[in-house]
Design a protein around this nucleic acid. Structure first.
Lengths: 140, 140
DNA sequence: ATTAAATCGGACTATATACTCCGTTTATGA
DNA sequence: TCATAAACGGAGTATATAGTCCGATTTAAT
């Protein structure tokens, strides 16, 4: 299988977009998120817990506890999330997997690939979580 | 780890580019390829063998055997190789991993991501293996 | 106080990919 | 014809990621 982002990162993006959608509804339990996103509760729970450690989201234990955003969605880009979960290797490492590839000794596709990768990076950087507030209905 | 193409696909691209470079030198052994590309001989061997089955490269057994391109490098795009080895899921599947995402019910980033993905696909489609024939020295 | 509902932590299993090992077959060249 | 060098095939191991399970802890509501 070929992935662009890891499964964990996909779930993180889904979860945060979902929390942004529900941001005025207090704490949302992992149970509810899992149901609405059709993801295993235990796994999304683990993913969200690590996002808490990263400071992107908040959690509250106990009855009526759950998860909520920790930052202003306007100040949270999709790139922030990707970098925190997967790191920046996807934007840096050589497409052909050549360890020596770089500006000094570029691989055959290095210069062709660069602008595309930069465009995707900028798209993610310029897209904030807040842009997906639903007018009617759900964004996911 | 986050990958764009699988390791196998990376090795396939490296191997074919290497064979294009050596295309007038007859059969090249897996041993030599492995040495020059710094890849395990057994693994590149397996990868090349599957490319033989896919019809992209040729092989000859026995002494002074080895691998060589099976097609005109001008008629072989990088996209051909990627599609054969990894399939087209990387160009089709939703970035957020949402199974329902598509033109009818796009995910939040679907429309933003589309043009970037299309650009990368076209770059690979418009880049042939023949473009990397070295004038002086090695392309890899 | 007690109960219920939630996160948290740690350890575990499953699966796919990456990679290795070794014997068999095939062909070449001396 | 015989040794050698190569691909081939099958089966195995290693590792990372994905996903599960369960008990401990925390908190709010009754």
């Amino acid at each position: 299988m070929t992935v662009l982002f890891s499964r964990k990162c996909e779930y993180a993006l889904q979860g945060i977009l979902y929390l942004a959608e529900k941001q005025y509804q207090g704490n949302i339990s992992a149970e509810q998120i899992a149901n609405d996103l059709n993801i295993s509760r235990d796994f999304i729970s683990k993913t969200l817990q690590s996002l808490v450690k990263d400071g992107i989201i908040q959690s509250h234990r106990g009855k009526s506890g759950g998860f909520s955003l920790a930052r202003d969605p306007n100040a949270m880009s999709l790139l922030d999330i990707v970098l925190i979960v997967d790191g920046n290797s996807v934007f840096e490492s050589c497409v052909l997997g050549l360890p020596t590839c770089g500006a000094e000794s570029p691989c055959p596709v290095h210069n062709k690939w660069g602008p595309i990768r930069e465009a995707s990076r900028e798209m993610l950087a310029n897209t904030t979580v807040a842009q997906f507030q639903p007018i009617n209905g759900s964004v996911i």
